[in-house]
Amino acid sequence: MFRIFEFIGAHIRPFLEEFGRMVLLLLNTFKWLIRPPLDIRNIMKQILEVGVRSTPVVLITAVFTGMVLALQSYTGFKRFNAEAMMGTVVALSMTRELGPVLTGLIVAGRAGSAMAAELGTMRVTEQIDALYTMATNPVKYLIVPRFLAGILMLPALTILADIIGIIGGYFVGVVILDTNPTVYISRTKDYLVLSDIYNGLIKSSFFGMAISLISCYKGFYTEGGAEGVGKATTGAVVISSMTILISDYFLSAWLYG
């Protein structure tokens, strides 16, 4: 009987420990975030890295997602003569779900992995220790800019993904499947409300925060040389992606509930 508790404890304790350290890092990040001065140079560098450099991948993903949504919803709705609703389906799916979630997953894979690898390398090559010796707090110098970039850039990328996805849907619906453009646009406009968009942006901002925090955490506490950096990077992407998908359900239930 005790064996069972031991077994459960042995598996839950490390998880709780890690979660606790992550929460501490989050609090520490907030502490340094509100303490001036903000390091504008570094923040811009991370905005470039997380936002600008992710844009092409996000756009390509969004346009094809919008296109396939139009294609599939056309096929499905045609069976009961509702293909005019195609525009609505594309717009709602993109703004409420796919825009934020796909952007989050892409940024987790692209920028999250880079954050974990960079911070992990800095840890194992003593660059983080070097920051301490030069009287510079590494949370302030390394994590705060990445954290801000995540929170700010995810919604920005999501807006782009929403727009491009809807354009991709329009292209397939109107140009390839030859439906009426006026109907497509009116069905998009009539059923899409502002809260669809901004609730999506709230979700994406949360995803941005989660990606930055998890990836920075994984990198910052890397142990064990090159192998450790590899593990940290993998862990960052896996945990960020899982967090996005799981929290998406609960955030959706709460925001749209």
Binding site: M122, E126, Q127, D129, A130, Y132, T133, A135, N137
Partner: peptide, 22 residues
């Protein structure tokens, strides 16, 4: 930490692998 950083400014440290910022 704040007081410690004032003390650290008296120091310079050369790390084993130099620990230059990449």
């Amino acid at each position: 930490e704040g007081e410690l950083n004032e003390i650290r400014k008296k120091f310079g440290m050369l790390f084993q692998g130099a620990a230059l910022f990449d």
